[in-house]
Amino acid sequence: MADQNHKLAIFRGRLKFKSNVQKIWGVLIFLSIVTAIEVALGIIKPEILLNYFLGIKLINWLFIIMTIIKAYYITWDFMHVRDEKPFLKNTIVVPLLILIPFLLFILLYEGSYIFEVMFDGLKAWNFDIY
């Protein structure tokens, strides 16, 4: 069993915990802080973050990055991927890292292309009689 050899450091070894239980609470505090920042940003919506960067608003980039950070700590610490052998880690993570960005790219690109066709196209698609 892997019970005696939990890796007890997060943030690349900057924060070390004495026991596994302490690490769990530490990760909970971290995840709560990130969620609180997300909710606060979602309610305040600072003007400066509403500018676009690579077709998506800065604030949305922040949300996506924070979500991925949360996902990392849930899988690495709650699901104990940190303690697994590298082979198992890669078996889980690599297929997702290849397939999801691929799917994301083709479908979002296609979606904005269809938007442009319907927006600029010669044919009317919105049959508004007035």
Binding site: I92, L96, I100, L103, L108, G111, F115
Partner: peptide, 28 residues
């Protein structure tokens, strides 16, 4: 269980990405 989770994660990303597709299609 891990293999099931990986496949289920792909299912959910399929759903969320198709949501993104529809949203980008009606972005305005």
């Amino acid at each position: 269980m891990w293999f099931f989770i990986v496949s289920d994660a792909l299912t959910f990303s399929g759903f969320l990405v198709s949501y993104g597709f529809s949203r980008f299609k009606n972005i305005d």
